[in-house]
Design a protein around this nucleic acid. Sequence first.
DNA 1: GGGTATTTGTCCGTATGTATT
DNA 2: AAATACATACGGACAAATACC
Lengths: 287, 287
Amino acid sequence: MADPMYRVIAEDLRRQIESGKLPRGSQLDTEIELRDRYNASRNTVRDAIKSLITRGLVETRPGQGTFVTEQIVPFVTTLTGDPETASGGEGTTYTREVKARLRQPQDTPPRVEIQIASDPVVSELQLADGETVVIRSQARRIDGTPWSLQASYYPMSFVERGATRLIQAGNIDEGTVEYLRASLGLNQAAYRDRIIVRAPDRDETLFFGLPEDGRVSVIEIRRTAFDDQGTPTRVTVSAYPADRNQFALDIGKVPAGIMDPSSARTSGTDSTTVTAAPGESAPEPGG
Amino acid sequence: MADPMYRVIAEDLRRQIESGKLPRGSQLDTEIELRDRYNASRNTVRDAIKSLITRGLVETRPGQGTFVTEQIVPFVTTLTGDPETASGGEGTTYTREVKARLRQPQDTPPRVEIQIASDPVVSELQLADGETVVIRSQARRIDGTPWSLQASYYPMSFVERGATRLIQAGNIDEGTVEYLRASLGLNQAAYRDRIIVRAPDRDETLFFGLPEDGRVSVIEIRRTAFDDQGTPTRVTVSAYPADRNQFALDIGKVPAGIMDPSSARTSGTDSTTVTAAPGESAPEPGG
DNA sequence: GGGTATTTGTCCGTATGTATT
DNA sequence: AAATACATACGGACAAATACC
C-alpha cells in the first residue's frame, strides 16, 4: 500500500496499454468512468493520466477524450558522418534521406531577422559588442508532423563581404554552407554540437502541440561551425520534441547493415535515419 | 486574461528567480503564504510550482519547503574524440578529466549479473536465442551527486574464451576495452551511440532523486561497440538525469581554446568536460 | 527518544470554463 | 443549441516528512 493511488491507477493503465488490451490509438474510458471504476476522485484519475502523458503513452484531447498514443516512429537524426562530410557540408542529404524513407519533408522557407548581437547564444560567434547578426529561422515538418524549429545565426559582416543572399528570405538552394564557400571562400572545417534537454518554451509548445505544462521536453542541439582558420562562422540552434526524436552517432567504421532494432522502451524505431546536420541545410521548397 | 492563473503565478515567480530577487538556494514562501499573496487556492499555487520544477527552477522538500535550485553546473560529457580515441578505448580519461575539474568522481564497483539474452536491448549483440550475456552495472556520482547509471552487456562467450575477469564483480583497473584487447585480441574499432530522452523509471527516480511524477527526463545513451570485423562486442546503456547533464560532440578540428560559454537557458555551464565514453571505463575504486 | 509544529504530498468533492462533436 | 469531455480552480481533510525543542 505504499504506492499512492494515482500511481496504482497509472500502473494499471500502463499494463493494459503495453499488453495490448488497450490498443494504440484507442480511446480510454472518460475520466468520470475511470473515477467510478477505480473508486477514486476525478482529480486522482487525472494525476494518473498526467503521468502517462509524461511517459508518452497517452494524449488528451479536450472535448474528445484520452487516447493511447499511436506508435510513434521516432525520427532518428544522425549527428555525424565523419569530418569529411561535415566540411563537405552537404546539407541537402537530410531532405534526400527523409524522402528515401517515403516520408515527406516540409519546411517553411527561412524567415530572416537582423539583430544586435546581445543574445548570449551568439557569444560563441566571438563578435564585438553591438555587432549585428543575421538570423535565419525555419520550421520543419515530416509527413505533416512538426519536427523541429531551427535558427541559424551568422555575422552580419558576411553579408557586407558579399554573401548578400543570406538576408534574403527563402531558401538558398545549394545550402548555406555551400553558398558561403562559393561567395566568401569559407570552408566549414569543423563543428561542435551541444546537446541539451529542457522544457519547451511557449512557441515550441504551440508549434509541436506539446502539453501546456512542459511535461514533454525538447532536445536542443546547438551547433557551432568553424572555418579552417578555427573561426566560428555560424551558430545553429535546433529544437526537437523529445517524444518523437532520437539521435545517433557513428564513430569509426560502423557496419552499415545494422538496421537498428533499437530500444525496447521507445517501441521499435523504424529508424528514419537522417544523415543531416542540424546546420541550416538547403531544404527544398517545402511541400 | 487568456493565461490561466497557475501560469501567471509561475511566470511571476520565474521572473523573481531570474532577476535575482529570489537568490539561488533561497526558500520560497510556503504554499499557504503564496496562496494568500496571489489570492489563489493552494492547489493552484502547487500547479504553478510544478511547472517551475519542470523547468528546473525550484525543488520541493517535503517537510521543509520549496527552494530555488542551486545553480546547476551541468556535467558535459563529450561523446566523441575521434575514431582513434574510440578504438584506443582509453576509458579512464573520464576519471582523470573529472578530477582535473576539481570534482570528485565516485563509482560503485560494478555489479555483475548473468542473464539469458532475451532483453531486446541485447538484440544488437546479434546473439542466438537462449545465449547468455554478462551484465556489468554501476552507479556514478560526482562530488556526491548521482550522475549516471550504467549497464554494459557482453556475450558470455567472451568469458568462455578467456576473459574471465568479466564476471568478477569490481573494477577492471585497466578498463574493459583494454582488458578485452589484452585477453581476447578484441579491438574496439567503432561504436554507434543512440541518444534517447525518456521519463525515468522507478530506480532512476530514486537514485537521482527526481520528482516522482517523471517530470524530469533522463537521457539514455546506448552505445554499441564493434570490433574491427564489424562484430558487435558490447552494448552499454547509460542513463543521465537531464537536469544536470549535457553532451557535446566535436567533429573535425574544433579549436581547443573554446571554453564553452554555453547556453543562456541552462545558466552558464562551467563545463566539466568529460572526454569519456559511456562505455564501461575503468573507474578508480569509487570513493 | 518523544512530542509538536511546520510544510509538502495525496485525495476528495464541487463548480465553472472551454473545446469538440 | 445542446451534450460531452477535458482544463482550470476552489476549499477542505489527512498523511508523511522534517525540524526543533
